Computed example of a mutant assay.
Amino acid sequence: MSKAQGTVLEIDLKALKHNVAFLKSRLQPNTKFLAVVKAFAYGSDSVEIAKYLEELHVDYFAVAYVSEGVVLREAGITTPILVLHPLPESFETIIEHCLEPSLYSTRVLQAFIAVAEDKKQSNYPIHLKFNTGLNRLGFAEADIPNVLSIIQDKRAINVTSLFSHLAASEDLKESAFTLQQIEQFISIASTMVNGLGYTPLLHQCNTSGILNYPNAHFDMVRSGIGLYGYGNDPKFNSYLKPIATLKTIISQIHTLKSGDSLGYNRALKATETLRTATLPIGHADGIARAYGNRKGYVIINNQKAPILGNVCMDMIMVDVTTIKCNEGDEVIVFGAQHTAEQFSETISSISYEILTAISQRVKRVFYR
């Protein structure tokens, strides 16, 4: 890794390879691996991450919305791409770019079949999502007879997978609920397979499901946050490597005397002499205002520097009173040691939020 030149997000592809290998080591050899690259690959850069994951021979990608899948196809990605939350107005685009929709209600199922038939498709791959307790998207188990009646004799489509989503697989205090979800999915899959007359892929496990519920890996698993180095549990975090390091530099150092104020709304009023450093990163780059006023901190020369006053759009100020540092010195916002999980915990948030919040104006630099 190089010394930061301004604000950059460094992506360690070797760490990504390590994470894929670790997660696959938890699987049976014939279990397929789906890599979730939605939300700009959790803030990293979906195209670069997907290109590298293709080199590692993942079986599937997943994105949230059709536009994300289009970006990957236009970049030359050929691996199958599951779109987790497609909307009917984008169904023609799905077919044009060979994307595979998750269909989760009677309305979207019928709408997609109509578009597929209009486009003279044959056995177009679709994925049927069932709700087993997350209560976000998905058919209910009671919908199965209606689903089967709708797709019966529809040659335009083919059910490639049946899947569901675990709600609390990272929380072992909720294991009874998770096991109930798994059992319900098994029941749904059995009924659907009998009705279809063939067996689609089955998948339900997310990263924490992979790690905590090996008996529920079925035909394929889906990993998002685990790819990027987080296992939602300290015992698993130790086996994973965060791939992203957010770095910046010290632009200027100031000395405040007692009575001086700092930043917008004079949120900090010094009661003693303070030495502060201004950094070229702010809420437009993903550092929310909630991190201000000594909630969050960065690392300068291996020491914690609390964020002072209100976070500005393009800058934050930090306390370096007790830290030996100079203008131009490197600053770590989060990385392998001071992780995104630790950074986000200071405002009772989660690693997912800070990772996906990093603005695309922050330069991404990739290392193999």
Rank of each mutant, 00 (worst) to 15 (best):
G224Y: 11
L211I: 02
K235E: 05
L227G: 00
N212L: 00
I225M: 14
G231H: 12
L227K: 02
G231I: 15
S238V: 07
F236S: 00
L227W: 00
V221W: 10
K235D: 03
Y230N: 14
L211W: 04
A216S: 10
G226L: 14
H217V: 03
N232H: 12
P214N: 14
L211G: 02
F236H: 09
Y213P: 02
N212W: 01
F218V: 09
Y239S: 15
P234Y: 03
Y228M: 02
Y213L: 04
R222I: 06
G224N: 03
Y228V: 01
N215R: 11
V221H: 06
P234F: 03
P214M: 11
S223H: 13
P234C: 02
P214T: 06
F218E: 07
L211E: 01
D219T: 02
H217E: 06
S238N: 11
D233R: 15
S223K: 13
N215H: 13
R222C: 08
Y213G: 03
V221K: 07
D233L: 11
G224V: 13
A216C: 09
R222H: 12
Y228L: 05
N215A: 12
G231P: 10
G224D: 05
Y213K: 08
G226P: 07
F236E: 01
A216D: 07
L240R: 15
Y213T: 06
I225A: 09
N232V: 05
A216W: 10
G226A: 11
P214A: 12
D219R: 06
F236Q: 03
M220Y: 04
G231Y: 13
D233M: 13
N212I: 00
A216H: 07
G229E: 04
N232L: 13
N232P: 05
G231D: 07
Y228I: 01
L211S: 02
P234S: 02
G231A: 13
S223V: 12
P214D: 09
D233P: 06
A216L: 08
N237S: 09
N237D: 14
K235A: 07
Y228S: 00
N237M: 15
